[in-house]
């Protein structure tokens, strides 16, 4: 469904991604590990098409369409969705309006907000004064309303307290159709620094990124356990 081929990306003139290859099929969820500054967010932002992420080489193919140079909204229309780690505040734009922009079915956004106990935020400006956990919840409700075929999740568990981790996990599972076992249509790529989200959401494959390159791939649970045990230092050695 998503094929990234030899992708090189510059940010503010600095080479950040150095030849990334990644293939994610329909129904698969992949997990991307890596230290802060390894280039994980740059990859997600590039996939969504945000400005400031300049593709120098390589291409991104989504649903057989070369989207490498498509504008952000064209990618969204094709079925790509993103949960940002630190989304901007939209002053004067209420969450209920934002949900209307997202929703595939009229009224879906509001119903989701009620379902996840977030309806008291509908009249508030998007992300204005939201806590870390509230931002994540808001992002996921927007995505559930949007219902993209491929979801990019940047650190969905950061800033979320223990009580809410389970709920965030449930929302991601719904987004990625984890309740469907045959012919699952939805795919996703989850960035995680801590890996804790794996306790709630099962991933099919894991990748480790370091200094803008993919180091290894494998069973996400095993990779996570290795990182927990030995830290990313071990990955550095692995690279050698």
């Amino acid at each position: 469904m998503l094929h990234i081929e030899d992708l090189w990306v510059d940010v503010h003139g600095k080479e950040v991604l150095k030849g990334i290859d990644l293939h994610i099929e329909k129904g698969e969820t992949h997990c991307l590990f890596g230290k802060n500054g390894s280039g994980k967010t740059t990859l997600l932002m590039t996939l969504m098409g945000f400005s400031g992420y300049k593709v120098k080489h390589g291409r991104i193919v989504f649903k057989d369409v070369d989207v490498t140079h498509l504008p952000v909204n064209e990618r969204a229309k094709l079925g790509l969705g993103i949960s940002l780690q630190r989304p901007p505040t939209l002053k004067g734009v209420k969450l209920k309006d934002m949900l209307k922009f997202c929703e595939s079915v009229p009224g879906l956004g509001k119903n989701l907000a009620i379902q996840y106990g977030f309806d008291s935020f509908l009249e508030r400006d998007v992300n204005l004064g939201f806590s870390g956990g509230e931002i994540k919840k808001s992002e996921l409700i927007q995505l559930l309303a949007q219902s993209p075929d491929f979801t990019l999740l940047d650190e969905p568990e950061s800033g979320v307290d223990i009580e809410n981790l389970h709920l965030i996990g449930e929302m991601i599972k719904k987004l990625l159709q984890k309740d469907v076992h045959r012919n699952r249509q939805k795919s996703g790529l989850i960035i995680t620094h801590t890996g804790f989200i794996l306790n709630y959401v099962a991933a099919d494959k894991g990748h480790v990124m370091m200094n803008g390159k993919m180091l290894c791939r494998g069973n996400p649970q095993e990779i996570f356990e290795g990182i927990q045990k030995y830290g990313y230092q071990e990955c550095m050695k692995c690279q050698l």
Binding site: R75, L84, G92, V93
Partner: peptide
């Protein structure tokens, strides 16, 4: 951010101005 939710650049700009 608004474009990632499906709005065109023009509609996104108008939304922010309105806000």
């Amino acid at each position: 951010y608004l474009m990632a939710r499906g709005l065109s650049e023009e509609d996104a700009t108008a939304t922010i101005v309105r806000g």
